[in-house]
């Protein structure tokens, strides 16, 4: 009899311990920033308390701020060497912070893999397109070609943390990978702050970590031709990035000129409306989406296989194609 009472008490105790642990449910918190990478950033997480979210949110904000300043090509900041400094001085060689070296290594991989299609040294050309986009006028072809004269990554030398340009008029623009790289670093900061179930969205560059309490995070793929979504993706611990002609563009005489420039034609690439990539590594995901936008489908698919990524192409005529494994993410 005694033993039975003991066991019953143990069972009840177990139940009593078990119940509160399930009562302590995580709540959804969200914050939006507008000051990083010229885009709207949203950080949404499930946390056990507001203070836990606040800690993670601060870690994310600090990391994004730090990398935003490092990768800024328009402004320099006191006491730090950033890409604007590099662009100004790298003709003589500039020692760079580790994050810039890491970012350029990613570019090195993809510059090689894409046969030079993804090129951070396209800075002078992209600068012209950037200014034209703000003014709403078309660039001068001669000016573009002049800017392109030295614009090649094989004229950028990196060794022992020092970046040197072959010609002082060269410049770097890391817009194709910076957000992906930064989201990965910021995600690491959030996890260090004890939060692992979150979505970090840097203006269409979405990093998904963990799960929601009621299932996978869901990322909608924008339909470039309409309001809704082409498809919805259930992902966990991966990045989803879209490069599209609708993200940053201007129109002249009814023709749309977007921001993804082919380094060989120096004009916006025209094969696709949008390319969406799913890849575990956030920097690779970002690099892949721009690379694939500039490549034919076969080359893009081969690149996806190399990096374990999946892709969805929305062609210029609106038809859709996908890598084999893409559908397994669709819901």
């Amino acid at each position: 009899m005694k033993r039975v009472i003991c066991r019953a008490a143990a069972l009840l105790l177990a139940a009593a311990l078990f119940l509160p642990s399930c009562g302590k449910t995580k709540k959804r918190y969200s914050v939006t920033y507008t000051e990083f990478f010229d885009t709207v950033t949203n950080f949404t997480a499930y946390c056990v308390s507001e203070s836990q979210f606040d800690r993670a949110e601060k870690a994310v904000r600090d990391k994004l701020g730090e990398l935003h300043r490092l990768f800024d090509i328009y402004n320099e900041y006191d006491g730090t060497v950033n890409l604007a400094t590099v662009n100004r001085l790298a003709g003589d060689g500039v020692p760079v912070p580790e994050a810039i070296g890491d970012l350029l290594s990613v570019y090195g991989l993809f510059w090689y893999d894409t046969g030079g299609l993804l090129d951070p040294a396209l800075g002078p050309v992209l600068r012209i397109w950037h200014d034209c986009r703000e003014k709403g006028v078309l660039p001068d072809t001669d000016a573009l070609e002049a800017a392109d004269e030295h614009a090649s990554f094989n004229r950028v030398f990196m060794s022992d943390g020092v970046v040197r340009f072959e010609y002082p008029d060269m410049s770097l623009d890391v817009g194709a990978v910076a957000k992906g790289y930064a989201s990965g670093a910021a995600a690491g900061a959030a996890r260090n702050a004890g939060v692992s179930d979150f979505v970090l969205d840097l203006g269409g560059n979405v990093l998904v970590s963990g799960k929601k309490p009621d299932g996978d995070w869901v990322v909608g793929v924008t339909d470039p031709t309409g309001e809704g979504f082409i498809t919805k993706l259930a992902v966990t611990d991966a990045s989803v990035v879209t490069s599209g002609d609708y993200q940053r563009y201007f129109e002249v005489d009814g023709v749309r000129y977007h921001h993804i420039i082919d380094p060989f034609t120096l004009m916006p690439a025209t094969r696709y409306r949008a390319v969406t990539v799913i890849c575990r590594d956030p920097a690779y995901a970002d690099a892949l989406s721009t690379s694939l936008f500039l490549m034919d489908e076969a080359g893009g698919a081969a690149l996806c296989r190399k990096y374990g990524a999946e892709a969805l192409w929305i062609r210029a005529d609106g038809t859709i194609s996908k890598t084999e494994g893409f559908s397994s993410y669709e819901r």
Partner: peptide, 8 residues
């Protein structure tokens, strides 16, 4: 609880 959590 929101149709999607983010869009790309």
């Amino acid at each position: 609880g929101g149709e999607v959590d983010a869009r790309v």
